[in-house]
Write a protein that binds this DNA or RNA. Structure first.
Lengths: 369, 369
DNA sequence: ATAGCCTACTAAAACGTTTTGGCAAATTGC
DNA sequence: GCAATTTGCCAAAACGTTTTAGTAGGCTAT
């Protein structure tokens, strides 16, 4: 069972002192400057010398001390992700999915992610610490709210960041988001076009903008169709997980006039699935179901009835885009910009999908989110 | 030959550079030494001087540059968590749960978590990089396999680490684990004591030790009861998520002699729940169900039938313990040690729980895992 | 009075890099 | 053959801390 090819050999001394550029200079009887310039690709190093240096560096397992580099270059190649304890309570598959994309792209762009949590009231202090102690080059902000103070803080501090989501000031910073408003407007318009008149919308916590904008989309679709506002009942789950999907679906279906249920997340739908199925069996009431599908890796949609209509957008791709955008700012010096992720609609076969292709009414198009 | 590397853009733009100890020294007309010693609590600083320094530091928002500190102290206060892309595919709630505990405890112990992913074959290179470039003080290793090369590598390199789980060499390093073997031995013995004779065990990927040891526990309980080896059928899900719980439960119940199903994870059980319920309804075959409950925050057990027997251990607490153990080594210089997390049994009311209290046979007790 | 001892401060070295500016030696141009 | 240019290397400064090894001056004990 020999060593796999390419397996790194552990450093010789178990004591742990790493090889430094000085060791290399001593070994080769060259100056530190020359070692550094050779390894960093400067042209003013002779070919034979460079080859010797590269060989010795490989042989001795030299790696520049990152902290020395960071100190002199004023650049850490670290990106901070600050997680609130509050959100930690339900650190959910959505987080994992975004993080998976972030990690994959960060590796490609040569960044590490510094992950930390903070207590209830310490959110900004955590950002402040990172800003002041030079431990990261930039920040990722997830789940923004309206007038998000993290965004205000980092803007004032003049530090690079990118937001997963948007709020009012979205034109002033880099972000990655899907078109929450548009997606849910279209989804609701689709249900209306198919004759439904009484709806339940099982949404997330509307202090988060993603949920707020979805609500706005749904509300406006109803208004634009000339339906009364009470055609829609909205249920919010403070936590995206738990048994909210189950209990809220029960509540929603208690109104027997409801013929269509719209979910903000496929997790809520899965939790409520049993109730939905029962409603079909028991009341003989077939319910139209629509949801957002974030392509969570561990939700297997094959077990969902084919009658589910969904709009799909990849959170993992959003994670990739977040790092790509930040790297564009950090590495290429480009100005911040927003990235709108594509969504695709998948309509249940018993529904007429034609309304999806209609453009949104002019007045509805400028809304962010 | 060689190109001059493109110059990275300085991260701080608008608000500019942070204030340094030099700024503070200039402002107060004191030496750098005195500032440093005052702020670090040395006794050889006058009371009035110290007060003035502290006031100025607060007023100007001084924070020591972490990279300078790390360079001179040879200590980063960073802990690495390396995630394989492979595992990323199903970055699952178990991960989130451990991570939540790790983050909370890391904050308390003044550590940041450096999270990174690596490609298929690059696992050890990633560890190697961190070892050689001084970017972290220690490592967390999750999901160990037998003869885990990450453990070999870090041991040879002489770097501190702590393992979530165990393998053969567990006495030689710090770890946090539950007693997988014991728990599953007892669970199976309980089922046997209640008259069951034909079992399905829906386990995880047995190249991971947690799953392997659980299998061993189950197998030994059957052997010790004098039951034939074919009383047990084991089903493995390569991925902890997906629809494995559903399809494997279907397969398992296809054998109509099976009266008890043991799950390695509550997620698998939840996915198979529909099948289990149907089996009860359709075949009139009540199935005894037992599982591990990791206290995942988003699995709401209230919806599971009361007939489920489970052994419960908190992954979040394990996360806390991981950092506590690593901090014991790094901050207190204590030798590595193992931490066995407590588990509690919760027996369905229709089962006789007495066998749980019996000690394991002597020969069974030394097994790790 | 004086040796010794606190008290309150500081200069300089060190951590490990990158980069600036320079300088010999080798090569080229005429 | 000599000036000009190119090639290949290096000393020193800088990044922002902590720590070592002081020192100057006041106080105490004899």
């Amino acid at each position: 069972m020999g060593r796999k090819p390419g397996r790194p050999v552990a450093p010789q001394s178990a004591s742990g002192r790493n090889i430094t550029i000085k060791d290399l200079a001593a070994e080769l009887e060259l100056s530190i400057t020359t070692i550094s310039r050779a390894l960093n690709g400067y042209p003013d190093v002779g070919d034979k010398t460079r080859a010797k240096i590269e060989e010795a560096a490989r042989r001795l397992g030299y790696r520049p001390n990152r902290n020395a580099q960071r100190l002199v270059l004023q650049r850490t190649h670290n990106i901070a992700w600050v997680q609130s304890d509050n959100e930690l309570k339900y650190l959910d598959p959505h987080f994992s999915e975004v993080m998976a994309g972030v990690l994959a792209e960060a590796r490609a762009a040569n960044y590490d992610i510094v992950l930390t949590s903070h207590g209830q009231d310490r959110e900004l202090q955590t950002y402040d610490r990172y800003v002041r102690d030079n431990s990261v080059d930039g920040f990722i902000i997830d789940l923004p709210r309206e007038d998000d103070e993290r965004i205000s803080f980092l803007t004032e501090a003049g530090r690079p960041f990118v937001v997963h989501g948007r709020e009012q000031r979205a034109s002033q910073y880099g972000w990655v988001d899907m078109d929450n408003y548009d997606n849910f407007y279209r989804l609701m318009r689709l249900l209306i076009a198919n004759g439904h008149r009484r709806f339940a919308f099982i949404n997330g916590d509307e202090t988060f903008n993603y949920a707020l904008y979805r609500h706005h989309g749904v509300r406006d679709a109803i208004a634009d169709a000339g339906l009364p506002a009470d055609s829609l009942r909205v249920y919010n789950s403070a936590h995206p997980m738990g048994d909210a999907g189950f209990s809220l679906t029960q509540k929603a279906l208690a109104d027997t006039r409801v013929t269509a249920v719209l979910y903000s997340s496929i997790l809520l739908l899965v939790e409520g699935y049993e109730v939905l199925a029962n409603a079909g069996l028991r009341d003989g009431r077939p319910i139209a179901i629509a949801t957002m599908d974030d392509e969570l890796r561990h939700i297997h949609s094959t077990r969902l009835a084919p009658r589910v209509t969904f709009v799909r957008s990849s959170l993992r791709d959003a994670g990739h885009a977040l790092i790509a955008e930040l790297s564009r700012q950090l590495d290429d010096g480009q100005p911040a910009r927003g990235v709108l992720m594509r969504s695709s609609f998948h309509v249940a076969p018993d529904l007429d999908a034609r309304s999806l292709d209609d453009p949104l009414p002019m007045a509805r198009r400028t809304t962010i989110g």
